[in-house]
Design a binder for these strands. Structure first.
Lengths: 240, 240
DNA sequence: GCCAAATGTGCACAGCGTCAACATCGGCGG
DNA sequence: CCGCCGATGTTGACGCTGTGCACATTTGGC
């Protein structure tokens, strides 16, 4: 399938796309392994990411993976990044195929609904990837990250420190959306600060409750209703 | 009963008053195993629940566990139930130690804030248990559960089918809270239907984003702010 | 008091992550 | 053009896991 590569150093040279290598040295194993591992995550979530199976699918011995990933956890980190990227991609894709409405207020409102729906839809359509995107195997890691201070949760733009919320592209998209909502007068300016929290929490909570939690028992129609009610509520809460 | 023990070394609790029999073969292993497994989940989350280790701590052979749990997944199910119970217990506990305010409106509002805060606090204080409570290893299981239809998401009371949202005690608590919010005129009656979705999604989303997601980088103070802003927003959205 | 059911043990197997030692390739200096 | 050396891949092994099978022990009902 089409996979969205997220490696910073993209292959600049000419390599055969149709994967024709039977040499002792496999072309770019790192990328292939991450891709295969992502495929595993897609069906089965983070626990389905097993290094040996990824190596098997890449046609390589298990230990070969260790030339490119320090550990299983390291491979999972790469898969997580890809999953995050696919989520953000799904959100942007939903926006892309959207005609612009004449009324800017109606336009931004609809885009907001579309984005929220895309977020939840991605979770429902690709639960494995979604779970993986927000998986956290090592608690210590999270604590360590928390040590790095970040800027106050105000408007987008100024951030400090290497660990940044905005490294999550989906969060960035959300921030811009909120700015537009304020600009068009839908959202009260005095409610802009920290508005990402209720907005994102709502979408994310709904998505996880549907795929992992109690709301899984809802029929698709009921889930649809849940999305609508939830979105309306948070919009009403942010409205001026 | 849900004391947060501070001694990770010895037996982590588990008082069994009923069967006071002499130590014949072995006590009620099922309970002991579940307790030990829950202790594992507490530090390390669902992936830390390993059957052999639980058996080891219970002082029995690994296969002994199979007399009480059909599989590792089955053991995890038991641990999940315990984790859910502890979450609900923490919420109720937070309410219990709360004096009643004269103004019913102020009272229910404060209880709402306390409950939401307790939910997030439990996730932060006991990330392992919280993650376990909402873990889902087998996608097929979720799909199967979804097959069982439930009643429309309206007011509490009428539900159909064995699989019920309200088997989650925390959800039940939330429903009653919303009823009171309507009764005291804080929440518009016409917004009552499906109000559990935005309310719970918000709390749950915030909690998971903090312990597993991007919001982990926030300082405790910033997390506090995030909780407040999020709660205010959803309350404003539900208000009449 | 005996026997069957319940409960716990030992052993074994396959699969996992990972390490150490060895094999092979490909690019660079001579 | 050649040889070498670092990057890459392989084999084998270790300890861990979940789990099935045959066997040992306990216990409650007759």
């Amino acid at each position: 399938m089409d996979d969205v590569s997220s490696t910073p150093a993209a292959t600049p040279g000419a390599t055969e796309p149709p994967t024709r290598r039977s040499r002792y040295h496999h072309g770019d194993l790192a990328n292939t392994l991450a891709t295969e591992a992502t495929a595993l995550a897609r069906q089965g979530g983070p626990t389905a990411v097993v290094l040996r199976e990824a190596a098997r699918r890449a046609g390589v011995s298990p230990t070969a993976a260790y030339r490119h990933f320090a550990s299983h956890e390291d491979l999972l980190v790469a898969v997580r990044a890809r999953a995050q990227e696919q989520l953000a991609g799904a959100m942007e894709q939903a926006l892309r195929s959207l005609p612009v409405l004449p009324d800017p207020r109606a336009d931004i409102l609809r885009r907001t609904r579309v984005i929220a729906r895309a977020y939840v839809r991605f979770a429902v359509d690709e639960p494995g990837l979604f779970r993986t995107a927000f998986s956290n195997s090592d608690p210590a890691r999270t604590r360590a990250r928390a040590a790095a201070a970040v800027s106050p949760p105000g408007s987008a733009g100024g951030t400090a420190g290497g660990t940044d919320i905005y490294e999550y592209r989906s969060f960035h998209i959300l921030g811009e959306l909120l700015d537009e909502l304020v600009a068009t007068g839908v959202v009260a300016p005095e409610r802009r600060e920290g508005a990402e929290f209720p907005a994102w929490s709502t979408m994310h909570g709904l998505a996880t409750l549907i795929i992992d939690g109690p709301l899984a028992v809802l029929t698709p129609e009921q889930q649809e209703l849940a999305v609508r009610v939830t979105l309306d509520t948070v919009l009403a809460g942010l409205a001026r």
